[in-house]
Amino acid sequence: MDLSSINPILLLASLMVAATPILLAAIGELVVERAGVLNLGVEGMMITGAVCGFIVAISTGSPWLGFAGAALGGALLALIFGVLTQVLLSNQVATGLALTLFGLGLAALLGQGYVGIKAPPVAKFPIPLLSDLPVIGPVLFRHDPIVYLGITIIAATSAFLRYSRAGLILRAVGENHEAAHALGYHVIRVRLLAIMFGGACAGLGGAYLGLVRVPQWTEGVTAGAGWIALAIVVFASWRPWRLLLGAYLFGGVTVLQLNLQAAGVALPVSYLSMAPYLATILVLVMMRSGRAPGSLGQSFHASR
């Protein structure tokens, strides 16, 4: 075992990359949950996004169109969930699980002809000047644009929820849908939009896995990332900036575990691979999470 082979700067830089897919999926789910909807289908939307992004990227040759396609695919799949839970008033937990099972099958079906093909490369975009800083430069400012996009979405979501009128309406719908309805807001419409935003973000996160992290399509490429994203939303107590902390924590565990594997630690690979999942459980136990949105997981029917 040679721990000195692990370079801390490279470790931190790859931590940011490893955290990005979880971060993207989690911020989408955070908005959905703040609107009072519990969508357990993140894993399904992520993997569908991954396969849609991969197919579009391969057929157009442009990874950016791939990311757009992934967001669209994720949003469309989320719309199925939205219609079922909001219009047909089905149980959100069961529908979310169904979405995951369906998404995994759909992705495997769509991705059949694409196994083993390499994705078009995603160029890095070092930020001028800042990337030349010692230590901070390589860690923070020499990534591909999607890493920056993830952080931008966090900032934008935080500002949206905190300062905008629409954000206030969304929070009202999530805290008490009866009151929001009585005030004349369209609960169902707000929730459907939030659900589609969540799907688009999960799709982006999935595409990041398929196009950047593992630049090829393999079945089950998400390997539970969607579930970890759900856990991080609880960890963050439904606050955007704390999401960043959670995602980097998990990115850190994942990267460290991979580095330890490469460094040849005496533990078998299987036990090291358990680490991110065990860390998730540990964090769920240790974090006294904040208060969940008041109407989380409840169906809304106007005539009640």
Partner: peptide, 18 residues
């Protein structure tokens, strides 16, 4: 394809909930 059956099973659950 084997995945088609998985999609079919997922669809069944969707319709059931609907």
């Amino acid at each position: 394809p084997a995945a088609a059956i998985q999609v079919l099973q997922g669809m069944l659950l969707f319709f059931l909930l609907a």
